[in-house]
């Protein structure tokens, strides 16, 4: 039986914005999300910009305040309640949970050598006592990320995008985290290099037993790397399933639309996609009922009034849609 590393229930993150006539408005970036991330898994989180995927990732790292619900982290050594975590325990959590950023050009200080960049977390967290010890840890993780000693002496500007991303990864992993949030970590890379970084992340997951939360808008990348995928729309989790199951038989109309919007590599397969109309609504002015009803081709009156809850049909394939069973049957018929 596999263990759960991250368990979130009714998890919400809201930001207070502006001060209107009726007092402060709250932007619900993440809205009552239930999430279980299994230990050692490669968990994918997909959605369009504005869906709240980045905010969810950061809130799990305690980088933005959690405003509602519960979340816990249990790696076998420690058991933390993320909503109340503070003081020395929070400091300890920082070693266990790390973030890899999207843009390898912006994330590395141009005035530090690669060695210093990778060593910085060790020094800040006080994980090593002597310089020799620090150097040893840096060399060890650098080798894992396929960086050699020569690289460590140089400055980031001397590296290409793929190499920079490997430096960011080494920096995130040097403190020995158990849980790593990779936020659009390959989005800024060329296709030819992207595959290399993805393979590296998978290797690290296996070798170092790290649990990844992989946030991406690129479904084909997610399909190839993740074990389990959750789809977000306007702060809500609309579908969650093992990768193969999700790609074989998506249940939510939004997931189906996302899949069909991926440009096919087959030139003869043009224009067969079922296109979504319009754009994701503004999070400050969210639709009533099911948040997807404004763009959903199958919306009925009920969708405008009642918000569907995430259903757990028992096969591990969760979906939040009033009509998914009905649509499944009509598709089979």
């Amino acid at each position: 039986m596999s263990e759960t590393l991250i368990k979130a229930r009714d998890f919400s993150v809201g930001f207070k914005i502006g001060s209107g006539f009726f007092g402060k408005q709250v932007l619900k970036a993440v809205d009552h999300v239930d999430l279980d991330i299994e230990k050692g898994s490669f968990f994918g989180l997909v959605g369009e910009s504005g869906s709240g995927k980045t905010t969810l990732g950061r809130a799990l790292l305690k980088a933005v305040p959690i405003t509602g619900g519960s979340a816990s982290y249990a790696d076998g050594e420690v058991d933390y309640d993320l909503t109340t975590l503070a003081g020395p325990e929070l400091k300890d959590y920082r070693k266990r949970a790390q973030l890899i950023f999207q843009d390898p050009y912006a994330a590395l200080s141009p005035r530090m050598t690669v060695r210093d960049i990778i060593a910085e977390p060790l020094e800040v967290m006080g994980l090593t006592k002597t310089r020799e010890e620090t150097d040893a840890r840096v060399r060890q993780i650098a080798a894992k990320c396929r960086l050699n000693l020569e690289h460590l002496r140089r400055f980031p500007h001397a590296f290409s995008g793929g190499q920079r991303q490997r430096i960011s990864i080494a920096r995130a992993l040097v403190s020995g985290p158990k849980f790593v949030v990779a936020d659009e970590s390959v989005a800024a890379l060329d296709v030819s290099i992207q595959a290399d970084v993805l393979n590296l992340l998978k290797e690290l997951q296996r070798d170092l037993k790290i649990t990844f939360l992989f946030i991406s808008h690129d479904l084909s990348v997610v399909a190839h790397t993740c074990d389990h995928v959750a789809v977000m729309y306007l702060g809500r989790l609309v579908e969650s399933a093992p990768t193969r199951e999700l790609f074989k038989a998506p249940r939510h109309p939004y997931t189906k639309a996302l899949f069909s919007a991926i440009p096919s590599l087959d030139p003869d397969d043009r224009g067969r996609a079922q296109k979504l109309i319009g754009e994701i609504p503004s999070p400050t002015n969210q639709p009533s009922g099911c948040k997807f009803h404004t763009r959903c081709p199958h919306a009925v009156d009920r969708c405008k009034k009642d918000e569907p809850m995430l259903e757990h049909p028992g096969d591990g394939h969760e979906v939040a849609c009033h009509r998914w069973r009905e649509l499944l049957e009509s598709a089979a018929a």
């Binding site: 190499q163 296709v191 030819s192 595959a195 993805l198 193969r244």
Partner: peptide, 24 residues
């Protein structure tokens, strides 16, 4: 050929991703 092989394909999830070796 390398560019095409590096692309994750949705119809074959088992196919390994093959990067173009090295950097530009």
């Amino acid at each position: 050929q390398g560019l095409l092989a590096a692309l994750p394909k949705l119809d074959d999830l088992d196919a390994p991703l093959t990067p173009v070796a090295g950097d530009i």
